[in-house]
């Protein structure tokens, strides 16, 4: 390429055209949407659970998570939320931050926050689900 045409007026697109797809990124596109779809029922359940938790105090919240169905939904809510928000924040960082060191730093920071929050959230839920009231 570029033997006869000077590069002065060529855009990056014209240089990229004809080389095929990037062969990567489809899994991320699908993961963004799959986690989003999972969060449709889970976030509606979260509103319901929030109302129930507001009603019952500490004992009510523990009793809610003592049900395996609620504990599973809560753990999935936290897990899918953290995965989804990690990808969402990555898109925002990649859109607005172009300095490589800052960009990579923020991506790693956000991933760290999301994985830590996800791990603490799921383990807290499982602990309450397995141990119940008074076992802290």
């Amino acid at each position: 390429m570029g033997d006869h045409a000077p590069n002065l007026y060529r855009t990056p697109l014209s240089r990229a055209r004809g080389f095929g797809a990037a062969k990567t990124g489809v899994n991320r596109f699908i993961a963004e949407r799959a986690t989003g779809i999972a969060l449709v029922p889970l976030s509606l359940w979260a509103v319901y659970a929030g109302l129930r938790i507001a009603q019952g105090g500490y004992d009510g919240a523990v009793a809610l998570l003592h049900s395996p169905v609620n504990a599973a939904l809560a753990a999935l809510l936290v897990g899918f939320s953290c995965a989804h928000m990690n990808m969402g924040m990555a898109v925002i960082v990649e859109d607005y931050i172009h300095k490589p060191a800052t960009k990579v730093g923020l991506l790693l920071l956000s991933a760290g926050v999301c994985w830590l929050a996800g791990a603490i959230g799921v383990l807290s839920i499982l602990k309450v689900a397995f141990s119940g009231v008074g076992a802290y």
Binding site: I53, L77, G88, A117, G121, S124, I125
Partner: peptide, 18 residues
Amino acid sequence: VALYVGALIVVGLALSLA
């Protein structure tokens, strides 16, 4: 972005419960 912070608040609630 608000829900990013909101998820952290919910995780904090779960932690406090535990």
